[in-house]
Write a protein that binds this DNA or RNA. Structure first.
Lengths: 356, 356
DNA sequence: ATGAAAGCGCTAACAA
DNA sequence: TTGTTAGCGCTTTCAT
């Protein structure tokens, strides 16, 4: 119960002009209170602009705050109060897809009262299923006022804070979510190849447990069917949205006795992998093989040749997520919007098949 | 002092199989302790794998944890203990530059014990000077074990956690920092223009209070001088690394009675602005005007025509920052590395001046 | 092997 | 107008 708990050396600092640091390198509200000779609650009131503090006291406290370089601890205050004015965005990792989204989210949040905290906590030893539940639970309710979860793979439990999910990969009982038209985008990509004159069009799949992958495959199949092209099952190859598997897939596909003239990969990462493998096979792109991806990540524009793809309007999707979340936070009713349109971005990896 | 503080409804849940939720939507260590009929300290020991708990107790506690979906609160535990295993990256905002860096940082952190938290807290009403100090103070010492600060503009105070700064824009007393060769990059960009045959080369400056801007201008001036080209001061125009000012600058420059045939902008954002203005002036790029930027942000590759620029190896710089920070965290001595090389990326906005 | 109790830095009733 | 007090959820001695 003795009040001399910490940093006794700063007891009479107001007269000495030199800036004061706490021994631990960080001033606490207690330090401020002691130096200013007021109670911690008074300091708290000043810091939070509450009514009922004498002007002279306010001035004194502010002076000490400046002297000590005091800044309220996010952690401590968030533990006690409900509002933190921080929006959390939870991602499995910071790859191009999340980064694009983050860009749109950040831009939309500018000028509002909210700060943005992006958290990637995929590093659990048990693999990464359920990262979203863990992260949300660890941050939710205290640190952040609301969350945007990117490509969650499992159901999000009803959490203590409002949640919006972007491009959820399960079909299930998600909270309010934002999605691209996976089916339509795949249909568009495949049709583009068809219109160029391709008939032997292969597909490298996405992760089997994710609904987006299924929808993209369905779009692909439907486009072929509508064009009256029979689907050869050996041209539909396993993949999982990652580089490794796509490299394998591309090898298998190109080693076929009668290889495809075009490949539609379920995402850009896979398409880029196929592009690389095609090069190793001595194939010229797009003369010998057309390749198209899905997502339009930044790297797609920078490959040689630049990758044709289908774009998810990630920027707009992020922006929309923010608007919905702010609505939720303001206590409004919000509804999931329809699917965002996927648009064809033809670059240099698609062309008519070489009839030579 | 009564132990029945919260969630009394989950008192006899072990027999009922259905999953239990707390009334507030989030189970706490107290809920677990009560349901498992042990003390909170025992639960804490189990969660953190401390010695001295009976196997049977461990099993029971784990079972309850699963039932309740309990997850330790980052906020609460970080308030009490020193280690959080979270690295913080502090940015003014999530723009392309920081995002690129984040990408490299994230990749390097993968597989380590650390999670990554990126925080953008520029939204203070007083403008954004000093955001780095505030953010660091708010998160440091408790939430994060170490920090990487991107383009800090003021001196970083000795903080309670290890700090690495990337591309600090002051020349001053920074903590360990990572930097690109601003001078050399600017020299390279200007030389590129010179070699193409340009003589009337304009420069749109960066923010005057930032050292990087001065170095880039010096590189520009030195390259001209070394080439024996006299500098016309009216061709060196104010800018501040932002779109707005660059638009103004480009207008002024192109409205000159004897306009430049080439522009070296202090960063890509400014160059892209110039590109846009040149279009409005009816100029063909690169026939009528060459433009080169600095940074190589993703948007640079996607403009029409794609922007020639000088690249900062942001990925490597981020990776290096992580390595140094991990070293610091492990108690090792680390030194600031030399400047990272800036490399010329000629794209389609630079060409020999049109002699027509 | 287990639990009681103190306290991390802060906010918010409530008293004075 | 100011201070006292009781926690937020957790970790950590220190008893038992």
């Amino acid at each position: 119960m003795t009040p001399e708990t910490s940093n006794p050396e700063m007891a009479q600092t107001l007269q000495g002009r030199k800036p004061v640091e706490t021994s631990t390198g960080r001033a606490t509200i207690n330090d401020v209170a002691r130096v200013a000779k007021v109670s911690v609650s008074t300091v708290s009131k000043v810091v939070n602009g509450r009514y009922g503090v004498a002007p002279a006291t306010i001035a004194k406290v502010h002076q000490v705050i400046n002297e000590l370089g005091y800044e309220t601890s996010l952690v401590a205050s968030s533990l006690r109060s409900t509002r933190t004015n921080i929006i959390g965005i939870l991602v499995a990792e910071f790859e191009p897809f999340s980064l694009e989204l983050l860009n749109g989210i950040s831009a939309t949040l500018r000028g509002t009262q909210y700060d943005l905290m992006a958290y990637a906590g995929n590093l659990s030893p048990e693999g990464h299923a359920g990262w979203e539940r863990r992260s949300l639970s660890r941050l939710g309710g205290t640190l952040i006022d609301g969350a945007i979860i990117v490509t969650p793979t499992v159901e999000i439990p009803h959490s203590s804070v409002p949640v919006i999910s972007i491009d959820p990969h399960t079909g299930a009982d998600m909270p309010i979510s934002i999605d691209v038209d996976n089916y339509g985008g795949a249909y568009t990509a495949t049709s583009h190849l068809l219109e160029l004159g391709h008939r032997r069009i292969a597909h490298i799949r996405g992760r089997e447990d994710l609904q987006s992958a299924h929808l993209r495959e369905q779009g692909y199949r439907q486009a072929l069917e509508d064009a009256g092209v029979e689907i050869e099952e050996q041209l539909v190859h396993h993949g999982d949205y990652q580089h490794e598997a796509a490299v394998l897939a591309a090898h298998d596909l190109l080693d076929l006795p009668h290889p495809p003239t075009a490949i539609f990969a379920a995402n850009d990462l896979s398409a880029l992998a196929a592009l690389q493998v095609a090069g190793e096979h001595g194939l010229r792109i797009p003369e010998d093989l057309s390749i198209i991806g899905f997502d339009d990540i930044p790297a797609a524009a920078q490959s040689t040749p630049p990758l044709s793809t289908v774009r998810q309007p990630l920027h707009e999707m992020g922006a929309h997520a923010v608007k919905m979340l702010l609505g939720l936070l303001a206590g409004e009713e919000v509804e999931s919007p329809g699917e965002f349109p996927a648009v064809l971005v033809p670059r240099k990896t698609t062309a008519a098949p070489d009839r030579g």
